[in-house]
Design a protein around this nucleic acid. Sequence first.
DNA 1: GTTAGCACTCAGAGAGTTCGAGTGCTAATG
DNA 2: CATTAGCACTCGAACTCTCTGAGTGCTAAC
Lengths: 356, 356
Amino acid sequence: MNLTDRQKKILRAVVDSYVATAEPVGSKAIAAQPDMPYSSATIRNELAYLTEQGLLEQPHTSAGRVPSPAGYRLYIDELMQDYRLSRDETQSLSQVMNDKLEEFDKAIAQVGQMISSLTNLPAYAVATKSQAITVQHYELIQTAPYSFILVLLLSTEAVHNKLIKLPVNADPQDLKSLVAMLNTSLTDLSAREITPQILAKLQRNAGTASDLVSVIVEFTVKTLEDEQKNEVFVTGQTKLLGQPEYQDVGKAKALIGSLDENMISTLPVPDKDSSVKILVGPENVSQALKETSVVMARYDLGDGMQGMIGVVGPTRMDYAQVAARLSYFAEGLGKMFSKALPPSSQEENETPLQED
Amino acid sequence: MNLTDRQKKILRAVVDSYVATAEPVGSKAIAAQPDMPYSSATIRNELAYLTEQGLLEQPHTSAGRVPSPAGYRLYIDELMQDYRLSRDETQSLSQVMNDKLEEFDKAIAQVGQMISSLTNLPAYAVATKSQAITVQHYELIQTAPYSFILVLLLSTEAVHNKLIKLPVNADPQDLKSLVAMLNTSLTDLSAREITPQILAKLQRNAGTASDLVSVIVEFTVKTLEDEQKNEVFVTGQTKLLGQPEYQDVGKAKALIGSLDENMISTLPVPDKDSSVKILVGPENVSQALKETSVVMARYDLGDGMQGMIGVVGPTRMDYAQVAARLSYFAEGLGKMFSKALPPSSQEENETPLQED
DNA sequence: GTTAGCACTCAGAGAGTTCGAGTGCTAATG
DNA sequence: CATTAGCACTCGAACTCTCTGAGTGCTAAC
């Protein structure tokens, strides 16, 4: 399908106007735009052609035109103008990032919220841990009789702990050797590698501290399993209510209801090279999203950690703006967390958008 | 205002029917109910009287009756039948409670979600810490050169930690004495009691570990401040979309939008003695809730920890059911967390509802 | 190739109509 | 005297009908 420049220009005008107003666009309205030196009649002819090509649709005979999914697709692939992030946007991103540096999961959740409030659309964020997570270091502290604190340093550099209250009167020497045992036998093992045999062996050698062993091992396994899970955050579902296409409560409810973690985890992962992936309406596999577009970006943190952030909204969406923001956030995340930079001061926070 | 038994019975019938159907209730519909030995004409007379008394309202002349806020109030105070929790409900509560025993904040949030999904209404949960929170015990672990784990045991029995990576080459002896100092000088102090003077003194005496001091103190203050904050969780806002009174997107959006943490924290705290407090429509102070009812319950954990859980919904609400569930959850929370029972196996989980 | 002009289409808004659930009142009833 | 049957009346909801105007496609002129 080869379009003339004029046709492209008109298609772009239709998409831009429809995205802005949510009203079908008529030939007169296009002709009235600045930098549009054609009469409404000419434009009508071109509109007819674009409709014939399946790029535009007519809700009914005497209405204006609306972009079809194919139209959006062409717009996204060829016509979309780059959107430049404003200073405010770049600033508030850097701020969120710095505030919560230490806790990765919270940062991810916050970025989701941020994107949602910037775009006024529901957003999601996924953190994937492809690498096996293990314990790197154990520590056991006795704070009072019968009161212990167990501390785990994980391979992700997260630290977990548990307060253990048990009527155990362990010999300090036994505690010391227990910790040593833990650090030799239980480190660098993933949750599934911790077998009953290992547990039994530990217990046998723990002397007066043996009652602690099962609690410790159980907590270790639980922690590793929890951390290994891919976490999914979805926020801002109610933002949909602000969109004209969801003025019908039934529709809104149906989509919001299905926008949960299960739904999100069925979404495809964008390729490594392309920064942003857009799925328009029927391009979505999930039935619930057939009239909905998803814009998603991938971030890579190295070391087996990666994830996606994305936005869900009506097909009529400012793709350029949303894509720019997502891509900025994804890059920011990558930079911030790329495997344990010590919390250094950030230097660059320039807009990383390439120009056309 | 003194009502005859018959009038009370009819009022109750109106409320029950309206709560169930959301449709104005006519005299015929009431007469058709079982255990209602009056003709529609008689009922019409009584309805007229109840309307005159301000307990019922008519949307328009030829419609049935709808309870007024005063009607709901009387119903709640005098006519409401006790609602018995089902086995399923009590079971699923016990389950949530057990799953997340250790982490109080998460449990609170989960209980909120649970209530929301049981009642199909938005729910909120607040955790209040009236007592000053302090650190009870410090521990500092060196896991590698330049890598330390700081562990804090708080007065609430929560344990917090932080991974510190600093190019400090501290003498083991200095580390040891630093920890000792922390445990004597920084324990039992609330966030605001930690003064610059204390920080300075610590730093002076820390020897080769002095670079660590400021990081540790900063983290301590931040942690204490964070923990001291009253946490508010709101969930299930979109449940409103299922209610017929919020089929209008504008209304739904307005209420959902104002249902945030700020709004929740303006709600009154139920008295200590009464287990459940109900505010009907205009009884609410907040303008946004004037056409909305709030059912709330208080839980007490002893030791300066208490809080509220509550449900927000249309004035047409099954008050009996919602109140029963809330009260059950509140009691359960109290029992579970009442100041550090060691994670014992729960014994009783009977419905704690008194009969009339 | 472009544009002015014109007949045609059709969703949406508004006016008018019908329908029926529900009411209040009156008179009959046990 | 409380209760009930009967009846005229009310009025919102739903439905139909008409009108309006934005927008179209086509044709003929430029």
